[in-house]
Amino acid sequence: MEIILTVNKQSRKVEVRPAETLLDLLRRLGYKSVKYGCGEGACGACTVIMDGRPVNSCLILAVTVDGREVTTVEDLGTIQKPHLLQSAFVESGAVQCGFCTPGMIMAAKALLDRNPSPSEDEIKEALDGNLCRCTGYVQIIEAVRLAARRMKAEKKKN
C-alpha cells in the first residue's frame, strides 16, 4: 500500500506492508534513532512525535500514518550543533548506554513544546512511559529542567 507522510519536514511517498509498524518503517527509511525496545508499548524507546504529540511508534500501523507528520530525534540537532535538550542530556549525565535517550528526548520535546516551564511532577508524568535501565531518572529529569531554563533564556534573547 502506498502512503505519503512527512518525516522531519520532508514529504515522502513510500510503499508499506499492511502489518508494518511505524517503527519498522522509520528504521527501514534510515531513521535509526527510533529504537525497538519491547515492541509492545511498555518502554517508550520508540517514541516519536506525530502531529505534535508523542506516540509509541511500535503500536502504530504505518498505513495509518498516511497524511501525517512525524518527527524523530534526527530533526533536532547534529553532533556539531546539538539541540538544547541534547546538550542538557549530555551535561547532566542523563545518557549512559543511550538506548532510551532518543525516546526520552522526543517525549521531553513534546512536553516543552506545549509547556515551556513544566513542574517536576509534569516532567515525571510526561516521561512516565519511558524506561531507562541505566541512569536512574534523576539526571534525566534534571536534564529536562536545564533544557527548559535554557530554551526560555534563548527565547528572551530573540
Binding site: 504529540r53 506516540v55 509509541n56 517525549a107 513534546a110 510526561a126 512511559g129 519511558n130
Partner: peptide, 9 residues
Amino acid sequence: IGATQHRNI
C-alpha cells in the same frame, strides 16, 4: 490510563 504516549492514540 497508560502513559502520555498511549493516551494520545
